[in-house]
């Protein structure tokens, strides 16, 4: 197996008495689409937030591209090529779609202590932004203010923003959340395209999508990895079945 792009060693994060991430270790190899699934409250979003640096772990180590990034703030990780989309859409609501994406491109084009020139007229930033919007199918909606976009379009915009940072690793936190059937299908088609270019970690509840897309799947229950493998193996795994049949107590008790 190739050198992992992302490696997590013995990660622990507690909130009061609750252990949201419980001695978790995993690896993501370059080029794969690695899905993370698990019942509600399994600590999936907490894990993603630790990977991107919004939440700091109590202990454990995170390596990204061979480098220990555990204590790096999120803006520095983003510069290293780690991008995320948010489960609950998190955009600049009062900015236009293209401004959202252009800012992401700007963030990766040196510092932004430029006080004079009109940033909206910088062709190179606008072109990167426009390309990312085209990519996700929002080319015609570039000048619309985010708050006027539909929920589905906002989800696509989340992706465009992440893409504009030219990531090595894309962490997608439930990109299908709240999407209708046709919108979901569009998103799956889009992810199928994107996975050819960038390594993806996908957190998703939509099992159909996960099994259609993933190279490997990690299953979390109560902050712990209970299984990790190719989709077929996961489908057959007894422990996973139990977790998804609602017998989570059995899973947590036995170890």
């Amino acid at each position: 197996m190739a050198e992992p792009l992302l490696r997590v060693d013995n990660l622990v994060r507690r909130y009061g008495g609750i252990t949201a991430t419980d001695n978790l270790s995993m690896e993501v190899v370059p080029g794969e689409l690695h899905a993370i699934i698990g019942p509600n409250g399994a600590g999936k979003t907490t894990l993603i937030s630790q990977l991107t640096g919004q939440v700091m772990p109590n202990s454990g180590t995170i390596y990204f591209a061979g480098r220990d990034v555990t204590s790096l703030p999120s803006y520095k990780r983003s510069r290293l090529g780690l991008a995320r989309s948010f489960q609950i859409t998190s955009l600049l609501k009062d900015f236009s779609a293209i401004d959202n994406v252009a800012l992401a491109a700007q963030a990766h084009d040196g510092h932004s202590f430029r006080f004079w020139g009109n940033a909206r007229k910088e062709r190179q930033l606008r072109e990167v932004a426009r390309a990312a919007l085209e990519r996700v199918g929002l080319g015609k909606r570039a000048d619309i203010v985010v708050s006027q976009l539909s929920h589905g379009e906002q989800r696509e915009l989340e992706l465009a923003v992440a893409l504009a940072t030219k990531p090595q690793l894309l962490l997608l936190d439930e990109p299908m959340a709240g999407l209708g059937v046709t919108e979901s299908a569009r998103m799956v088609a889009l992810l199928k395209e994107l996975r050819k270019e960038v390594t993806i970690v996908l957190v998703e509840h939509d099992m159909e999508a996960v099994f259609a897309l993933a190279d490997r799947i990690t299953v979390l229950v109560y902050g712990r990895v209970i299984a990790c493998g190719v989709p077929d193996a996961i489908r057959k795994d007894e422990e996973v079945k139990r977790a998804y049949l609602g017998e989570q107590h059995a899973v947590t008790r036995h170890d």
Binding site: Q54, P73, Y75, K76, S90, K93, A104
Partner: peptide, 14 residues
Amino acid sequence: GVRSNEQRMQAIGF
């Protein structure tokens, strides 16, 4: 952008 959504701006690298 930071006024609008600080977390987002951090996440894209500012």
